[in-house]
């Protein structure tokens, strides 16, 4: 009968593990559709050869504009280029009525975090890919999943529910910032990155 107790306990453990590793992540995140598809590779590929900063610009005072506004898209896409479905959506739903595309941002941080792109990209010369991964050469957008509790993108924690990154660029939590700053022997204070 000892054995039965052990079996029961182990089954409890296994049930928890199954729920925790498989059911929990599925329940924790809600998948949301992006307003349209976007192909980074077409822009950055050989044919067009654009660099990240051609669309993801800095303003005069050094702040980072993030995802470009529809005005930027319109510079080239005032009329449809090609005949893909997303091109049609872009022109008809956003460019022509001059409406901003309500993108869901994978790297959106909470309001109390302050991340100056200028200091990282311009002064420390960190490549975009070091944090954002090979996003610029992707041909489709990753699935956007939102955490039901915190309301932030799954990509902040990292795709892997364990929090252990499968790729070096995965995850945008504070420990990631702290690790990198520690490696560079930065003399930090909380308010350097919090507002």
């Amino acid at each position: 009968m000892r054995c039965k107790g052990l079996i029961l306990m182990l089954s409890g453990v296994l049930a928890s593990l199954a729920i925790g590793w498989f059911a929990f992540p599925a329940a924790l995140y809600r998948t949301e559709a992006q307003p349209m598809q976007f192909n980074h590779a077409v822009h950055t590929g050989e044919q067009n050869g654009m660099t990240c900063d051609m669309c993801h610009e800095f303003t005069e005072n050094g702040s980072f504009k993030g995802i470009p506004t529809i005005a930027k898209c319109t510079e080239c896409h005032s009329a449809a280029i090609g005949s893909t479905e997303s091109e049609k959506v872009l022109v008809e739903q956003f460019v022509t009525p001059h409406k901003e595309i309500p993108w869901k941002v994978y790297s959106r941080q909470p309001d109390n975090a302050y991340f100056p792109h200028a200091a990282h990209v311009k002064r420390a010369e960190i490549k975009c890919e070091e944090c954002h991964g090979p996003h610029g050469s992707s041909s489709t957008l990753p699935v956007y999943q939102v955490n039901r509790i915190s309301g932030y993108s799954r990509d902040i924690w990292g795709r892997n529910i364990s929090g252990l990154p499968s790729h070096p660029w995965e995850g945008m939590k504070m420990d990631r910032c702290v690790r990198c700053h520690a490696e560079r022997h930065r003399d930090d204070s909380c308010l350097d990155c919090h507002k």
Binding site: G5, L8, M9, L10, S11, G12, V13, L14, A15, S16, L17, I19, G20, W21, F24, P25, L28, I149, W157, I161, S162, G163
Partner: peptide
């Protein structure tokens, strides 16, 4: 109770408590 104890033990090795 044994099953529940096992579940709690197992849960500690899942991301549930830490992630929540």
């Amino acid at each position: 109770l044994t099953f529940a104890g096992g579940s709690i033990l197992g849960a500690l090795f899942t991301p549930i408590p830490w992630k929540l």
